[in-house]
């Protein structure tokens, strides 16, 4: 009994914090199923007296939304594979050879990508993409996203590659394996979980990217965040449609991350904490 009492303030803090974290999400989903009358009701109503799917029907029936969803899925998949592949290879090269010519400049480039506001690169990239004739093309998005997420992939994968004992690779070489065999049969299985974690993170960041598609795409390569963001630029805001679009954008993320939360927590924490 005394223990419960002592823990009460702690629970209180956590419950209040959880409410603060959940309420905006609840309110958005609620607004998306409210009728027009309920949306503008004053004082506000905290439940939907007459829930409607009209807002979702309207968004899902919009061909622009469907195309944006498809583009986002395809671009996220392709770019994630590219960034994780290049990042894992680079991490392997960096770990196995601590220093060689160009190491410093490579690190410098990764720092630039991480710390520079994306818009600084987006201005010249726009010109390049237009000149190359790939403006509004998913291909341009795939390459640019992959480069932007590369530092994160390298950083995460470095930790996992460091966990592979070099003796194992040497042993495989003594047994006659060539470098490709060593990579595929020795290194890859050991860094598998790391690759999976990196893939999830990179996919999450790629899915959420807004500035790059805003600048480098218009109609045919418009992504979901840009489509969803488009609801505020019109003069009269369609609150119900906007809430429905926002709900659609957050649901896949919420599902995915609840499935992989253990990996997520470990992966994010591993970088900052040294045993």
């Amino acid at each position: 009994m005394t223990k419960t009492l002592r823990n009460l303030p702690g629970h209180l803090v956590l419950v209040v914090a959880c409410l603060a974290a959940l309420f905006p999400i609840y309110w958005t989903v609620l607004t998306s199923v409210k009728s027009r009358v309920d949306i503008f009701a004053q004082p506000p109503t905290f439940w939907a007296s007459d829930p409607t799917w009209d807002n979702y029907a309207q968004v899902l029936a919009d061909p622009e939304f469907v195309r944006a969803a498809l583009v986002t899925i395809v671009v996220t998949l392709a770019s994630t594979v590219l960034a994780t592949f290049a990042g894992a290879l680079a991490a392997y090269g960096l770990v196995r050879r601590g220093r060689f010519g160009g190491r410093g400049s490579f690190d410098g480039m990764l720092i630039l990508i991480r710390a520079l506001p994306g818009i600084v690169l987006a201005v010249p990239l726009y010109k390049i993409v237009v000149d190359l004739g790939v403006y509004d093309s998913p291909v341009a998005l795939v390459v640019v996203y992959a480069a932007i997420n590369l530092p994160f992939a390298v950083w995460l994968m470095t930790g996992f590659v460091q966990g592979v004992p070099y003796e194992l690779e040497e042993a495989a070489r003594v047994d006659g394996a060539n470098q490709a065999g060593v990579l595929l049969r020795v290194v890859l299985p050991l860094i598998g979980p790391g690759l999976a974690a990196t893939t999830i993170f990179v996919a999450l960041m790629t899915w959420n990217e807004f500035l790059i598609p805003l600048v480098l795409a218009d109609r045919s390569a418009k992504t979901l965040p840009v489509y969803v963001g488009g609801f505020v630029t019109s003069r009269v805001i369609n609150w119900g449609g906007m809430a429905a679009a926002a709900s659609i954008a957050i649901v896949p993320i919420a599902l995915l991350t609840s499935l992989v939360q253990r990996n997520l927590v470990r992966g994010l924490s591993s970088g900052a904490i040294k045993d």
Binding site: L22, P24, P225, T257
Partner: peptide, 16 residues
């Protein structure tokens, strides 16, 4: 529950 906000698309957070 407390981790949820950091995982949401920033654009969606802005809209909310």
């Amino acid at each position: 529950v407390l981790l949820l906000p950091m995982l949401l698309t920033p654009v969606a957070v802005g809209l909310m």
